[in-house]
Design a binder for these strands. Sequence first.
DNA 1: ACACTATCCTGCAGGC
DNA 2: TGCCTGCAGGATAGTG
Length: 289
Amino acid sequence: MPELPEVETVRRGLAPAMMNVQIDRVEQRRLDLRFPLPPNFSARLSGQTIRDLRRRAKYLIAEMSNGESLVMHLGMSGSFRVDTHKPGLFHHRRQHAAAHDHIVFHLSTGMRITYNDPRRFGFMMLIPTPELNTHPYFAKLGVEPLSKDLDANFLAQAFQSKKTSIKSALLDQYLIAGLGNIYVCEALFEARLSPLAVAGDLVSITGAPSKKLMCLPPAIKDVLQRALLAGGSSLRDHRQTNGALGYFQHHFKVYDREGSACRRSACSGIISRIRQAGRSTFYCPRCQK
DNA sequence: ACACTATCCTGCAGGC
DNA sequence: TGCCTGCAGGATAGTG
């Protein structure tokens, strides 16, 4: 599920509860998610104070007071829930763990942060904070799409002589870090670009971005920003940390709209679904060229 | 260098 | 009602 807008929504929900708060203990309800959890996971986190909670691409990074950082990835179905544990009260209503609640952080404030992940494609790692930038998971990551690093000149340089489709190129986390299947489809629609276009064909021989490519960075930023305002997209698993749904799925122009009418005014196209690199692509063949 | 596939895992929708 | 198939927001390893 979680692409940049969902991960950032989660970060904004977690930050008030976690920032400058101590972790009392960590309840580890399984030994592994996608990978085995780090050795002594609970012990290494217990007693630490969370100094910062950042996002890089689709990763959440909680910097601890002991110099280690907890790096978390939500995979396809990961979510966090924040609630308050009230000991003594409501004794008759024991707070049961929900299915797929794998990790619970008990904070000194009485708040609990519960990580739920049905498919367990998510993972958590502990990395010494000074090594984050050189760690294999981060060293090669591409630009943040909402930063000014993402502009037409950057894309021209990134796409030059690339024979892969623009759809696949935008999904490549080593070029742009944080886009996923939904927002790539939506951004290509905004930019009126066919997902089948060859990335390198959008760059002139001199290395300058074509006019079509110039539309893409603003389209990407616009889609991501609107999704952020909506709290992300909830297809099945994504929740804000208070349990609320995101609602950007109601604003999709192409994603999951196969067979429906194109929403661009004066376009009479029908949204198509094709398969690219093993993933569904949704687009309007009439107005995306 | 590139494209495609299978893989990890669970849940759900659709067809019969 | 149930069984089966395919598909899902990600990312990697292996193949040709």
